[in-house]
Design a binder for these strands. Sequence first.
DNA 1: CCGCTACTATTCGTATACGATTTCGTACTC
DNA 2: GAGTACGAAATCGTATACGAATAGTAGCGG
Lengths: 225, 225
Amino acid sequence: MTDVTAAVSSGSKSQQAYAAVKARIVDGAYPAGHRLVLAKIAHDLGVSVVPVREAIRRLEAEGLVAFERNIGATVAGIDPTEYLYTMQTLSLVEGAATALSAPLIGPDDIARARAVNEEMRACLEHFDPLRFTRLNQDFHAILFEHCPNPHILDLVHRGWNRLASLRSSTFRFVPGRARASVGEHEGLLRLIEGAADPDEIERAARAHRTATLEAYLAHSANDHR
Amino acid sequence: MTDVTAAVSSGSKSQQAYAAVKARIVDGAYPAGHRLVLAKIAHDLGVSVVPVREAIRRLEAEGLVAFERNIGATVAGIDPTEYLYTMQTLSLVEGAATALSAPLIGPDDIARARAVNEEMRACLEHFDPLRFTRLNQDFHAILFEHCPNPHILDLVHRGWNRLASLRSSTFRFVPGRARASVGEHEGLLRLIEGAADPDEIERAARAHRTATLEAYLAHSANDHR
DNA sequence: CCGCTACTATTCGTATACGATTTCGTACTC
DNA sequence: GAGTACGAAATCGTATACGAATAGTAGCGG
């Protein structure tokens, strides 16, 4: 459940353009490398170029768009190096977000998260990577609902958006990673339920993300030999 | 040694406006709450309002400026809650940046950092909080020079900028914090020199920032009773 | 046939202009 | 005298317009 619904109408045309372009990038309508021509987007949205330009610059600041002076904007791809940077940062901020949220998570939240995780488990047969990824985000979003630090939460969301262009390729291509993920989720829930030491929760949440990164690294090393 | 020198001329007028306004905010020429009128800034810089607007929006994204629709922009202050959020995030990213950098720090870097720290120690008599803070940033900047993850480094710099408006009030008002800081720096250098476990280095770097936060909290709790 | 140069078309960057919204001051009423 | 309504000034938000820089293309020369 993302903020895409707020795409249409949000006061200023700049916001509107921002939401519209962001949605198209995140859901893949504008693939990586796609050229973003200000005048064309402005025409499509029925606004002038100025608000569109502002929207594009904002997306650039979030890392979703690459903008070159006098050249133009393109949807930012994510090469292995960028992937590494982003995953490292995500493991950091997700770990902290989970640890900070843990004391505020109630039994009902746990139940909801566990239900989502069971759905993920069921999803392992007839595997649908996109659905699996959406459920994965829902799972963590529940854990972060009560996160007391909005800055850290914002960083988490930025990381997720940044990875959106990959279209869950890790789950898709690294065998066994999806199943392992479900197991780690359950472990995380047990720790939170048991009111474990925040440091331990942070380590577990961090390792959860790091495991995906390392699975990717191992798999891509395998590919290239 | 900040990037203020790059303020003048940097290709686009938008960049120029960004650097100019940012410099004035960070160095205190525009204090917190100061009203930023687009037309006035544009006139002062000799450009039109469009690039200035773009610059202000960028500063807003970095948390340095608060922008309200149809109202205007003001230099963002930092209330206790924001301070807490920012310090928590900084402890997180500085801890990671230090741990990631540690294996890449050579003996010459250690020597330079130690020299800066000794300058800080000397600075404890005839205490000059602003100079002390600048040295403090120099110290950590040396440690981060080789940081292999630019995303995390960027987050560190954003946090520093966000705190700039405080004008080192923690060092100024919390007794003993400056001296403790110098000691913690030396401990950090020893850990790095000794090629300690990255986790231990991360904990120490994180605790270094957390200690300042807690000193502030304790002190302000004292104030309000 | 290949490489270089000049030209054209596209697109960005910024200035100017105008409508929309808010704020502040003033006058009027109770 | 206090509160409210109205109007003017200030400021933002966006559209339009034009200059600047770049990329693509055609033509020329080797």
